[in-house]
Computed example of a mutant assay.
Amino acid sequence: MVAPRGRDYRGSMADFVLVPGAWLGAWAWDEVVPRLRTAGHGVHPVTLTGLVGEDDGRADGEHDAVGLETHVQDVVRAVEDRGLKEAVLVGHSYSGIPVAMAAERIGARLARLVLVDAEIPVEGRSFANSLWDGGGMAAAAIRHNGGFWAPLIAEDFEGQGLSQQQVERIVAGSVPHPGASLTEPASLARSLSELPATYVKCLLDGPEPRTEVAELLQGERWDLVEMHTGHWPMFSRPQELARVLMETTGARS
């Protein structure tokens, strides 16, 4: 693990805004939150719009309007509505895109951006475009599933360091993900290299970050931390992930 090169927060308290990846809600951080709060930090897990389940009260067709920009605004509001001054924005998987876009919008309220095995926004490119086939299969699946991306099944979690019980918990809690948020292209006001950031690479999901992330890690403001676990460390290694979050921000543990 490398020491963060951003602002010095040693001995200080942080406000962590925790945003899970596709199909998941704030509940995904349930085993991470107590460790952070016990250490005295503010913790604010977020459920993005459209991910509270099929009975979320939205009328037919309303989910079609839940795009990437909706999720960016969810994160911005999580910071601004709570009056957070030194926010550590944590994005996992898909949510790395809206979280990083939000990070550049909240200005001086940002303490650090932490991306947990996450995608990053690339100008003009969507999350679906980052998939191995350029997003064609995902786009087709979304169309055939009423505008949603269907959750993974148990077999999809093999080799990710998860117990059967952990897999069952993820599968049981996952809900269809609003498809427009995955196909809407990202838009950036400035380079992500200007943001103080840490990228957490989960090695069971691949030994190297994507090319775009690797390039950012060459800069002075981005750091790399490796975890020997799979793509869902909030389930497989929650205590270790909580420690990593505190250490990468320099926050007191």
Rank of each mutant, 00 (worst) to 15 (best):
L192A: 13
V167E: 07
R37W: 08
V171E: 02
R35G: 09
E62Y: 10
W132L: 14
R221H: 10
Y94F: 15
A150C: 07
D56M: 03
V66C: 10
L162D: 09
A251L: 04
A26P: 10
C202K: 05
W27G: 00
L162K: 03
V213Y: 07
T248A: 12
E208D: 15
G61Y: 02
P207A: 14
P34G: 14
R125W: 05
E158Y: 03
A186C: 10
V33N: 00
H144Q: 15
F157G: 08
A141G: 15
V33Y: 11
A39E: 05
G124L: 01
R82L: 13
D205M: 02
V213N: 02
L24F: 06
V116W: 01
S93Q: 06
A22N: 03
H44N: 04
W27A: 05
D133G: 11
G124N: 08
L203Q: 08
V43K: 00
S163T: 14
R82N: 14
W149Y: 12
P98G: 07
A197N: 13
Q73F: 01
L204N: 06
T198H: 08
D133M: 11
Y9P: 04
G206C: 02
V213M: 09
E123H: 07
T49A: 07
P209S: 11
H231L: 12
E62M: 13
E54S: 14
S126P: 06
M101Y: 02
V32G: 04
H177R: 12
V122G: 08
P4I: 02
R190E: 15
D74E: 02
G124Q: 08
A108M: 12
V88P: 03
Q218P: 02
I106T: 05
G161S: 04
S236E: 11
G219F: 05
G61P: 13
G67P: 08
R10T: 08
A103N: 07
A189R: 12
D55N: 15
